Amino acid sequence: MSSGPPVPSADDLLVLLAVARTGRFTTAGDDLGVNHTTISRRIASLEKSLGGRVLAKAAGGWELTDLGRQALAAAERVEAAVQGLASDHSGDRLKGVVRLSATDGFSAYIAAPAGALIRRRHPDVSVEIVAVTRRASQQRSGLDIEIVVGKPEVHRAEAMWLADYTLGLYASRGYLAEHGEPETVHDLADHSLVYFVDSMLQVDELDLARRLTLSMRESVTATNVFVHVEATRAAAGIGLLPAFMADRHDDLVRVLPGKVEANLAYWLVTRPEGLRRPEVAAVIGALRETVDANRVSLGGGVARRSARAR
Rank of each mutant, 00 (worst) to 15 (best):
V125S: 07
R134G: 06
R121W: 06
E128K: 12
Q138P: 02
I110L: 06
I129T: 10
Q138I: 03
R119K: 09
Q138C: 09
E128A: 09
V97R: 03
I118N: 06
R120A: 07
G115L: 13
A111R: 00
I129P: 04
R120Q: 08
V97M: 00
P113E: 07
A102R: 02
I110V: 13
S101I: 07
T103G: 01
A116D: 09
S101V: 14
T103C: 02
R134T: 10
V125K: 03
S137F: 15
Y109H: 12
L100H: 01
S137T: 15
R135H: 12
R121N: 10
V97I: 03
I129H: 08
A112R: 07
S126F: 13
S126C: 09
I129W: 11
F106Y: 12
D124G: 05
V97L: 00
P123T: 02
G96C: 11
S137C: 13
L100A: 01
V132T: 14
V97F: 00
R121P: 05
G115T: 14
A116R: 04
G96P: 07
S137M: 13
R135F: 09
G105L: 15
R135Y: 12
V97S: 00
P123E: 00
G105T: 15
H122R: 07
G96R: 11
R135N: 11
R135W: 10
R121E: 13
A131L: 05
G115M: 14
I118W: 07
